[in-house]
Protein backbone atom coordinates (compact mmCIF):
# COMPACT_ATOMS: atom_id res chain seq x y z
CA UNK A 1 0.00 0.00 0.00
CA UNK A 2 3.01 2.25 0.45
CA UNK A 3 3.26 2.33 -3.32
CA UNK A 4 0.34 4.78 -3.50
CA UNK A 5 0.19 8.41 -2.41
CA UNK A 6 -3.07 8.20 -0.49
CA UNK A 7 -2.90 11.90 0.36
CA UNK A 8 -3.55 12.50 -3.36
CA UNK A 9 -5.97 9.67 -4.15
CA UNK A 10 -8.33 10.03 -1.17
CA UNK A 11 -9.00 13.79 -1.55
CA UNK A 12 -9.51 13.44 -5.32
CA UNK A 13 -12.16 10.74 -4.95
CA UNK A 14 -13.73 12.54 -1.99
CA UNK A 15 -14.04 15.66 -4.15
CA UNK A 16 -15.57 13.66 -7.03
CA UNK A 17 -18.09 12.03 -4.69
CA UNK A 18 -18.92 15.44 -3.22
CA UNK A 19 -19.53 16.82 -6.70
CA UNK A 20 -21.82 13.91 -7.46
CA UNK A 21 -23.69 14.50 -4.23
CA UNK A 22 -24.08 18.21 -4.98
CA UNK A 23 -25.34 17.38 -8.49
CA UNK A 24 -23.01 19.84 -10.11
CA UNK A 25 -23.24 20.85 -13.77
CA UNK A 26 -21.98 18.47 -16.45
CA UNK A 27 -19.20 20.85 -17.51
CA UNK A 28 -17.83 21.05 -13.96
CA UNK A 29 -18.21 17.31 -13.59
CA UNK A 30 -16.32 16.73 -16.85
CA UNK A 31 -13.48 19.06 -15.87
CA UNK A 32 -13.31 17.64 -12.33
CA UNK A 33 -13.02 14.06 -13.55
CA UNK A 34 -10.33 14.96 -16.08
CA UNK A 35 -8.25 16.90 -13.55
CA UNK A 36 -8.90 14.30 -10.83
CA UNK A 37 -7.74 11.44 -13.02
CA UNK A 38 -4.66 13.40 -14.07
CA UNK A 39 -3.74 14.00 -10.43
CA UNK A 40 -4.23 10.33 -9.54
CA UNK A 41 -2.19 9.03 -12.49
CA UNK A 42 0.57 11.63 -12.22
CA UNK A 43 0.91 12.00 -8.45
CA UNK A 44 -1.00 9.05 -6.99
CA UNK A 45 1.94 6.64 -7.12
CA UNK A 46 5.01 6.74 -4.90
CA UNK A 47 7.17 5.93 -7.92
CA UNK A 48 6.09 8.44 -10.58
CA UNK A 49 4.44 7.04 -13.68
CA UNK A 50 6.42 7.95 -16.86
CA UNK A 51 4.85 10.65 -19.00
CA UNK A 52 4.39 8.28 -21.95
CA UNK A 53 1.93 6.25 -19.85
CA UNK A 54 0.33 9.33 -18.32
CA UNK A 55 -0.44 10.58 -21.84
CA UNK A 56 -1.82 7.17 -22.84
CA UNK A 57 -4.10 7.01 -19.81
CA UNK A 58 -5.25 10.62 -20.16
CA UNK A 59 -6.09 9.94 -23.82
CA UNK A 60 -8.32 7.09 -22.68
CA UNK A 61 -9.91 9.19 -19.93
CA UNK A 62 -10.60 11.99 -22.43
CA UNK A 63 -12.13 9.56 -24.94
CA UNK A 64 -14.32 8.01 -22.24
CA UNK A 65 -15.54 11.39 -20.93
CA UNK A 66 -16.24 12.64 -24.46
CA UNK A 67 -18.14 9.42 -25.23
CA UNK A 68 -20.19 9.83 -22.08
CA UNK A 69 -21.14 13.42 -22.88
CA UNK A 70 -21.85 12.78 -26.56
CA UNK A 71 -24.14 9.82 -25.86
CA UNK A 72 -26.93 12.08 -24.69
CA UNK A 73 -28.27 15.29 -26.26
CA UNK A 74 -29.07 16.71 -22.79
CA UNK A 75 -25.50 16.23 -21.62
CA UNK A 76 -24.15 17.86 -24.79
CA UNK A 77 -26.31 20.90 -24.08
CA UNK A 78 -25.15 20.99 -20.47
CA UNK A 79 -21.55 21.17 -21.64
CA UNK A 80 -21.85 23.42 -24.66
CA UNK A 81 -24.35 25.98 -23.39
CA UNK A 82 -22.19 27.35 -20.53
CA UNK A 83 -19.20 27.46 -22.89
CA UNK A 84 -21.21 29.34 -25.52
CA UNK A 85 -22.53 31.71 -22.87
CA UNK A 86 -19.02 32.32 -21.56
CA UNK A 87 -17.79 33.22 -25.00
CA UNK A 88 -20.73 35.35 -26.09
CA UNK A 89 -22.28 37.07 -23.07
CA UNK A 90 -21.04 40.50 -22.14
CA UNK A 91 -20.95 39.87 -18.38
CA UNK A 92 -18.16 37.31 -18.84
CA UNK A 93 -16.00 39.65 -20.94
CA UNK A 94 -13.32 40.28 -18.27
CA UNK A 95 -12.99 36.53 -17.61
CA UNK A 96 -12.86 35.82 -21.35
CA UNK A 97 -10.10 38.40 -21.70
CA UNK A 98 -8.26 36.73 -18.83
CA UNK A 99 -8.51 33.35 -20.56
CA UNK A 100 -7.39 34.92 -23.84
CA UNK A 101 -4.30 36.23 -22.05
CA UNK A 102 -3.74 33.08 -20.03
CA UNK A 103 -3.48 30.73 -23.04
CA UNK A 104 -0.52 32.46 -24.77
CA UNK A 105 1.06 33.05 -21.35
CA UNK A 106 0.82 29.33 -20.57
CA UNK A 107 2.30 28.46 -23.96
CA UNK A 108 5.11 30.95 -23.38
CA UNK A 109 5.78 29.47 -19.95
CA UNK A 110 5.86 25.97 -21.45
CA UNK A 111 8.40 27.05 -24.02
CA UNK A 112 10.49 28.81 -21.35
CA UNK A 113 10.43 25.67 -19.18
CA UNK A 114 11.42 23.44 -22.12
CA UNK A 115 14.25 25.74 -23.10
CA UNK A 116 15.68 25.98 -19.59
CA UNK A 117 15.41 22.27 -18.76
CA UNK A 118 18.61 20.25 -18.38
CA UNK A 119 18.97 18.26 -21.63
CA UNK A 120 17.95 14.62 -21.34
CA UNK A 121 18.96 11.68 -23.51
CA UNK A 122 16.02 10.65 -25.71
CA UNK A 123 13.56 8.12 -24.32
CA UNK A 124 13.48 4.71 -25.88
CA UNK A 125 11.59 1.47 -25.63
CA UNK A 126 14.14 -1.06 -24.54
CA UNK A 127 13.54 -4.68 -25.45
CA UNK A 128 13.83 -6.59 -22.20
CA UNK A 129 13.69 -10.14 -23.48
CA UNK A 130 15.53 -10.42 -26.78
CA UNK A 131 14.75 -13.33 -29.05
CA UNK A 132 17.07 -16.27 -28.64
CA UNK A 133 19.37 -16.95 -31.59
CA UNK A 134 17.92 -19.41 -34.11
CA UNK A 135 21.31 -21.09 -34.46
CA UNK A 136 22.66 -23.29 -31.62
CA UNK A 137 25.02 -21.62 -29.13
CA UNK A 138 28.32 -23.06 -28.00
CA UNK A 139 29.17 -23.14 -24.27
CA UNK A 140 32.38 -24.84 -23.14
CA UNK A 141 32.40 -26.87 -26.34
CA UNK A 142 28.83 -28.12 -25.95
CA UNK A 143 26.27 -27.06 -28.55
CA UNK A 144 22.86 -26.00 -27.22
CA UNK A 145 19.80 -25.58 -29.42
CA UNK A 146 17.84 -23.04 -27.37
CA UNK A 147 14.58 -24.06 -29.01
CA UNK A 148 14.75 -27.50 -27.43
CA UNK A 149 17.33 -27.32 -24.62
CA UNK A 150 16.14 -27.71 -21.05
CA UNK A 151 17.69 -27.79 -17.60
CA UNK A 152 19.22 -31.28 -17.32
CA UNK A 153 18.63 -31.26 -13.55
CA UNK A 154 14.98 -30.17 -13.55
CA UNK A 155 13.75 -33.76 -13.69
CA UNK A 156 15.51 -34.46 -10.33
CA UNK A 157 12.72 -32.46 -8.71
CA UNK A 158 10.49 -35.48 -9.28
CA UNK A 159 12.92 -38.39 -9.49
CA UNK A 160 15.46 -37.56 -6.76
CA UNK A 161 14.37 -34.69 -4.48
CA UNK A 162 17.48 -35.00 -2.30
CA UNK A 163 19.81 -34.58 -5.29
CA UNK A 164 17.65 -31.73 -6.53
CA UNK A 165 17.93 -29.99 -3.15
CA UNK A 166 21.70 -30.41 -3.23
CA UNK A 167 21.78 -28.78 -6.67
CA UNK A 168 19.64 -25.91 -5.43
CA UNK A 169 21.93 -25.42 -2.44
CA UNK A 170 24.90 -25.35 -4.80
CA UNK A 171 23.02 -22.75 -6.84
CA UNK A 172 22.44 -20.71 -3.67
CA UNK A 173 26.19 -20.72 -2.95
CA UNK A 174 27.00 -19.67 -6.52
CA UNK A 175 24.37 -16.93 -6.46
CA UNK A 176 25.66 -15.34 -3.25
CA UNK A 177 29.24 -15.63 -4.41
CA UNK A 178 28.66 -14.06 -7.82
CA UNK A 179 25.24 -12.64 -8.59
CA UNK A 180 23.88 -10.93 -5.49
CA UNK A 181 26.19 -7.92 -5.83
CA UNK A 182 23.99 -6.68 -8.64
CA UNK A 183 20.75 -8.68 -8.43
CA UNK A 184 20.40 -8.20 -4.66
CA UNK A 185 19.88 -10.23 -1.50
CA UNK A 186 16.32 -11.16 -2.42
CA UNK A 187 16.78 -11.03 -6.20
CA UNK A 188 14.87 -7.75 -6.47
CA UNK A 189 17.50 -6.25 -8.79
CA UNK A 190 18.73 -3.92 -6.05
CA UNK A 191 22.18 -5.21 -5.15
CA UNK A 192 24.90 -2.90 -3.86
CA UNK A 193 26.23 -2.24 -7.37
CA UNK A 194 22.82 -1.91 -8.97
CA UNK A 195 22.55 1.85 -8.71
CA UNK A 196 25.77 2.35 -10.62
CA UNK A 197 24.41 0.45 -13.59
CA UNK A 198 22.17 1.60 -16.44
CA UNK A 199 20.15 -0.42 -17.32
CA UNK A 200 19.85 -1.74 -13.79
CA UNK A 201 19.93 -5.50 -13.10
CA UNK A 202 16.77 -7.55 -13.64
CA UNK A 203 14.38 -7.98 -10.74
CA UNK A 204 13.69 -11.74 -10.64
CA UNK A 205 10.84 -11.30 -8.16
CA UNK A 206 8.89 -9.48 -10.85
CA UNK A 207 6.37 -11.89 -12.44
CA UNK A 208 7.25 -10.45 -15.85
CA UNK A 209 10.85 -11.72 -15.88
CA UNK A 210 12.00 -15.29 -15.26
CA UNK A 211 8.44 -16.54 -14.74
CA UNK A 212 7.82 -15.81 -18.44
CA UNK A 213 10.94 -17.57 -19.68
CA UNK A 214 12.28 -21.05 -20.20
CA UNK A 215 15.38 -22.17 -18.37
CA UNK A 216 17.30 -22.40 -21.64
CA UNK A 217 16.75 -18.66 -22.10
CA UNK A 218 18.29 -17.96 -18.68
CA UNK A 219 21.18 -20.29 -19.48
CA UNK A 220 21.86 -18.36 -22.69
CA UNK A 221 21.72 -15.00 -20.92
CA UNK A 222 23.94 -16.11 -18.04
CA UNK A 223 26.47 -17.82 -20.30
CA UNK A 224 26.75 -15.06 -22.89
CA UNK A 225 25.85 -11.98 -20.79
CA UNK A 226 25.76 -8.46 -22.19
CA UNK A 227 28.43 -9.07 -24.85
CA UNK A 228 26.37 -11.93 -26.34
CA UNK A 229 23.17 -9.96 -26.82
CA UNK A 230 21.88 -10.12 -30.39
CA UNK A 231 22.15 -7.10 -32.66
CA UNK A 232 18.47 -6.75 -33.46
CA UNK A 233 16.10 -5.23 -30.99
CA UNK A 234 18.47 -3.26 -28.70
CA UNK A 235 19.55 -0.87 -27.38
CA UNK A 236 21.31 -3.13 -24.88
CA UNK A 237 24.23 -1.57 -22.98
CA UNK A 238 23.98 -4.35 -20.39
CA UNK A 239 26.84 -4.74 -17.90
CA UNK A 240 26.08 -8.43 -17.31
CA UNK A 241 29.34 -10.43 -17.69
CA UNK A 242 29.53 -13.54 -19.88
CA UNK A 243 29.51 -16.03 -17.01
CA UNK A 244 30.72 -18.91 -19.17
CA UNK A 245 34.15 -17.43 -18.58
CA UNK A 246 33.83 -17.96 -14.80
CA UNK A 247 31.32 -20.78 -14.22
CA UNK A 248 30.91 -24.32 -15.46
CA UNK A 249 27.77 -25.46 -17.28
CA UNK A 250 26.67 -27.38 -14.15
CA UNK A 251 27.08 -24.29 -11.99
CA UNK A 252 24.98 -22.21 -14.37
CA UNK A 253 22.17 -24.78 -14.48
CA UNK A 254 22.30 -25.03 -10.67
CA UNK A 255 22.02 -21.30 -10.15
CA UNK A 256 19.00 -21.29 -12.48
CA UNK A 257 17.34 -23.92 -10.26
CA UNK A 258 18.01 -21.66 -7.28
CA UNK A 259 16.54 -18.56 -8.97
CA UNK A 260 13.20 -20.33 -9.48
CA UNK A 261 13.27 -22.03 -6.08
CA UNK A 262 13.98 -18.80 -4.21
CA UNK A 263 11.43 -16.63 -6.03
CA UNK A 264 8.73 -19.28 -6.12
CA UNK A 265 8.28 -18.83 -9.87
CA UNK A 266 8.02 -21.77 -12.23
CA UNK A 267 9.94 -21.85 -15.52
CA UNK A 268 8.03 -21.70 -18.78
CA UNK A 269 7.41 -25.14 -20.25
CA UNK A 270 7.93 -26.01 -23.91
CA UNK A 271 4.73 -25.25 -25.89
CA UNK A 272 3.31 -28.30 -27.61
CA UNK A 273 2.00 -28.34 -31.19
Amino acid sequence: MEQFNWWVIVPVFAALIALRWRRTSMLTWFAAWWIGMFLVVRYGFTVPVPMSVVKLYMGLVTAALVAYVLTDAGRIREVTEPLAAFMTERRYLPYLAAVALFIPAAVAFGIYRDMTRVPQPPSFARTIHPATPAEPIDVHGTSYDLGTADNPYRELEETDPAAFKARVENGRKIYYENCFYCHGDVMAGDGMFAHALNPIPTNFQDPGTIAMLREAFLFWRIAKGGPGLPAEGGPWASAMPAWENFLSEDEMWNVILFLYEFTGHRPRAVELH
Binding site: V53, L56, P121, S123, A125, T127, P199, I200, G208
Partner: peptide
Protein backbone atom coordinates in the same frame (compact mmCIF):
# COMPACT_ATOMS: atom_id res chain seq x y z
CA UNK B 1 -2.87 -0.89 -23.20
CA UNK B 2 -0.39 -0.71 -20.30
CA UNK B 3 3.05 -1.57 -21.66
CA UNK B 4 5.27 -3.97 -19.78
CA UNK B 5 8.48 -2.13 -20.63
CA UNK B 6 7.68 1.53 -20.65
CA UNK B 7 9.12 4.24 -22.88
CA UNK B 8 10.81 6.44 -20.30
CA UNK B 9 13.52 9.02 -19.89
CA UNK B 10 16.67 8.11 -17.99
CA UNK B 11 15.35 9.91 -14.89
CA UNK B 12 12.07 8.00 -15.06
CA UNK B 13 13.85 4.67 -15.53
CA UNK B 14 16.05 5.37 -12.53
CA UNK B 15 13.01 6.30 -10.45
CA UNK B 16 11.21 3.10 -11.47
CA UNK B 17 14.27 0.92 -10.92
CA UNK B 18 14.00 -0.56 -14.39
CA UNK B 19 11.93 -0.40 -17.56
CA UNK B 20 8.76 -1.54 -15.83
CA UNK B 21 6.84 0.34 -13.17
CA UNK B 22 6.65 -1.39 -9.75
CA UNK B 23 2.84 -1.16 -9.76
CA UNK B 24 1.83 -0.81 -13.41
CA UNK B 25 4.29 -3.56 -14.36
CA UNK B 26 1.76 -6.05 -12.96
Amino acid sequence: ATPRSIIATTEEVQAMGGSSHPVLGY
